[in-house]
Design a protein around this nucleic acid. Structure first.
Lengths: 262, 262
DNA sequence: TAGTGGTCTAGACCACGTA
DNA sequence: ACGTGGTCTAGACCACTAA
């Protein structure tokens, strides 16, 4: 049908542009299905390879997923609000898992998590934040939190071995009163936090563990907890899929939040 | 040379895996050059199409860029630290551009920015935050900040027209004492901020304006400023390329930051 | 000018889930 | 069983830039 100019922009980009417009307009809504590759081949009079190149553009932009063999579909974003300030100084109050549980349950969905604990030489990003020497080990509690059985984020919490050795932090169970509380009981109460946020594409391992579609970036949230003496006693690496999370931080005097938490 | 199994994983993924390992190991360092497509064709005994498929994987992971006709190169990340808390309540102190200028100049690089001001119906994300009715207009100051002539981030600040009409905020010049100060003089001093951070792939327009390589996500930072009465008087949309920024937030009592700002 | 990656064609076989 | 997208081959011509 609609012949495309051969002169200017590559054909596959023109096709991608038209499909993108059809999506951002409302010709194809969220969860809507795109034409099949065969249909596009016929419509534009090009090879399947060219059509696939066009679709790959949209897939890598995170606009579209291929759900074989059903076809290509427009992606929908569903954001859960993540409030890193709630990780603040909670030696009292509800621990992290309870908060996650509660906010998810409020929406009628089912939260779950896996925990695995081990002693490792942490990655550079963590070792630096805990001020460990090269080769020095730390205890790590690795969690994958899921909603309705689908993985939602990764949460790896590292603690200097010298501090948590023999405590229940190195046991692979949920800590009902919260790890921060345990640290405080061990004499290492946190009074300050530093948050680092970066955005990047996921590693193959993250893509697999979080079941990420192509074109989905992650926000990596590094959190370091300090005692009153300025000693880091906790370093967290939080991997948040971009299509499922937004980060909310409030500063100063703000009105109540009316928006939904999803 | 090294024949690849035909049984299990697709060949192009196996090639991508080997190249990725070569990169994360130190066989190919940052800025290092990958083998040419022709070399990979010969090494693996596959078609150029398959080799290109493998390379596309790495490009979309943000690990590699193609710099035609020089070849494929390993990408290097250079992070500038962005501190949204410095946007906090600055009715006194140095305004935003000064801070950007100073921190860039400290590294011996040259900052610059373009400003353009217009009256628009803001996008939904902004209209919601400013509590505008459908179709209601706002003044927007659009900035592109650059370092050494290369675009670095996009900063679009929206103000309700009823508030800033006739003030210097609607003039396309830098405001030496800061827009926050002007708002305060107009009787709308901000006492609280709400930060929203999301991570996604850039739009084609953003990719073009920021000259982003494929595989580079952006962090979008929405900032809303509230008066003591809880009225939003400023909504900012900040687009931060993931390969150039990290966000730093401090909470409570933390030791001095020893890390470099880049 | 030589060599690089970018675009496009024409075809083949396969894995998979839904109907 | 059928139609979907996933993988792979074998070729062609082109645009760009560093040597």
């Amino acid at each position: 049908m609609s012949a495309l100019r051969r002169t200017s922009r590559p054909v596959y980009q023109q096709i991608a542009d038209e499909l993108r417009d059809a999506i951002s307009g409302d010709d194809i809504g969220p969860d809507g299905r795109l034409p099949t590759e065969a249909e596009l081949v016929e419509r534009y009079g090009v090879t399947r390879g060219t059509v696939r190149q066009a679709l790959a553009v949209l897939v890598n932009e995170g606009l579209v997923v291929s759900d074989r063999p059903r076809g290509y579909f427009v992606r929908r974003r569903r954001h859960m609000t993540y409030r890193p300030q709630q990780e603040l100084l909670v030696t009292d109050g509800a621990p992290a898992m309870d908060r996650f549980h509660r906010s998810v349950a409020e929406e009628g969905r089912t939260p779950s998590q896996t925990i695995d604990v081990s002693i490792v030489v942490p990655p550079r990003e963590i070792a630096t934040r805990l001020r460990l020497n090269a080769g020095e080990t730390a205890a790590v509690r690795r969690r994958v939190r899921s909603i309705d059985g689908e993985p939602f984020n990764i949460n790896n919490s590292y603690y200097p071995l010298s501090i948590v050795q023999g405590s229940e932090i190195v046991l692979p169970h949920d800590i009902a009163r919260g790890a921060n509380r345990v640290l405080a009981e061990l004499g290492h109460r946190q009074v300050g936090l530093r948050h680092h946020l970066i955005s990047r594409m996921p590693t193959p391992s993250e893509r697999h563990r979080l079941q990420l579609s192509p074109g989905t970036p992650v926000t990596v949230h590094y959190l370091t907890g300090y005692t009153a003496e300025g000693i880091p006693v906790r370093a967290v690496e939080n991997v948040l899929p971009g299509d499922r999370h937004e980060v909310l931080i409030e500063d100063g005097q703000v009105p109540p939040d009316n928006e939904s938490s999803t």
